[in-house]
Nucleic acid binder design. Structure first.
Lengths: 275, 275
DNA sequence: GGAGCGCTGTATCGTATGTTACGTATTTTG
DNA sequence: CAAAATACGTAACATACGATACAGCGCTCC
């Protein structure tokens, strides 16, 4: 079973003529980067001519050079999605059904945050902390609890935080209260909900700033969103995991709280005294 | 100091027009693979035209598209050479707010699961999957969304799943429906809510089996509970983190689904056909 | 309500890139 | 040692790719 081009090369390098062998060795030496460049660059690096490179990829079984490159890219993509860090967490001798799920979840989080810079989060937090507008939150069938969770926390440190619940017609009517200075936080992962998309579009038309939590395939709402947070959701289960998005939400809650520190602290104290 | 294109994008995404922002988001979502493909593919994935992609890379400071691609490749190459330091987000020496939060959360999860055996989880899952009784879920001020999340999923694979919402008096009345064969899942972390404790006690008196999600200091409800899941909640933030509990909940959801596989699969299909 | 600006997509163009044909060099074999 | 077969590079070719000019549209600001 051959699963990577590198193996394929190792398998056939013995049967190759001198020129192609040099190509193979050059590719292996800085695998797979050279293969992503142009034929001319590849040939120059290997010290052979362009046609030799093409004959080389043909011998590997590819119809043409672009096809070869696509294959390399797919390989890279797969590699990047399951970071090698996995090996750093010992395979938890237990073995049971728990480990794979936990491991995948941890990977998802690392991967999600890898695509997320401090600056982005701070920007979004700043937007949420900006007290000139209101904050609305809403989610889909399985993600609405995340919206609630976030709303519950934000509502403690600032006023004008509203979770949109209930029937579609209910929240649609709330559109009238929304304007340019307001923020709408939407959670939407596969399978994306039409009702949410429609709602997002209408809100967008009113100039509302949309912060979208979605999965790596991006909900169609992304096109209306000012900020998009793409979380990894794949786990060995019948369900997708929202855990990564949950952690991003918590991180944001923390960031907003920090930015509102002065005001927020007072607010929290007041609130405590009211209980 | 900007060292990666991802950062560069995060830095300037705020100043970009809508179309280019979509390009940026698409790139970040599957960073950096899309950027290595052709302009046509990139533009199609982002849902914009080719010139918009080119304007996008121009705005990032590149003279032309190939130069942009080379830069991405260099980045990838550097990344591949030091697999240990996979983190795209540099260790944020400036005290980035993200890393410590994420690290703490990941630690919490590992620690939480370290104290949780496969057997325990399977037992709880079996209890929840046992279809002779009903399942009720409820949570506290900040944890109720977790109860909702779990309820939303369980309700798909089995009947008789109820989330207890609204006023305290509302759910207190539901006690009348609860008996020995039923399960009550409660989420309660500091500061523990008296109302929940009272409710748990009454349910316990009726012989209801209680599954408690709490923090490492254990809610007083623990004394009534048949199963206790203690999650770590400490993070460098003003708030406690429920992320570990969330992941346990997802794990349980997965386990229950698996145990109900035969029935559950049919149920899910039926449900799909109803939509 | 009108004028101006900026953003975006369509259509066209030039060119860099992959591809192929062919001639020369090198090795292999009888 | 000769002759054939294979390998390799040069050079011409075609295509697909990136780049650009331009027009339509929406938005903002008078």
């Amino acid at each position: 079973m051959i699963s990577s081009i590198a193996e394929l090369i190792a398998d056939r390098i013995g049967t190759m003529p001198a020129g192609e062998r040099r190509a193979a060795q050059t590719l292996i030496a800085s695998y797979p980067m050279i293969g992503l460049k142009t034929v001319a660059e590849f040939s120059a690096a290997a010290g052979v001519s362009s046609p030799t490179i093409l004959r080389f990829v043909a011998r590997l079984g590819f119809q043409n050079y672009p096809e070869f490159q696509s294959s390399l890219q797919d390989e890279l993509a797969a590699q990047l999605q399951s970071p090698a860090i996995r090996s750093l967490n010992p395979p938890s001798p237990g073995g049971g059904t728990v480990s794979p799920m936990l491991e995948a979840t941890l990977d998802n989080m690392r991967e999600t945050f890898r695509h997320l810079s401090d600056k982005q989060l701070e920007d979004i937090a700043a937007r949420l902390a900006d007290r000139r507008g209101k904050t609305f939150l809403i989610g889909g069938r399985f993600t609405d609890p995340l919206a609630r969770y976030m709303a519950a926390h934000l509502a403690v440190v600032q006023s004008d935080v509203f979770h949109l619940a209930g029937q579609e017609s209910m929240w649609r009517d709330r559109l009238i209260d929304m304007g340019k200075r307001d923020v709408l936080v939407i959670f939407d992962i596969r399978r994306y909900q039409d009702s949410l998309v429609r709602f997002a579009e209408k809100a967008h038309q009113r100039g509302v700033q949309i912060v979208l939590f979605t999965d790596q395939w991006l909900s169609p709402i992304a096109r209306f969103a000012r900020h998009v947070i793409a979380g990894r959701t794949a786990v060995p289960s019948a369900w997708d995991s929202s855990a990564a998005l949950f952690v991003v939400a918590e991180t944001l809650i923390g960031a907003v709280t920090r930015q509102l520190e002065a005001d927020g602290a007072r607010r929290i104290r007041e609130m405590e005294s009211l209980r």
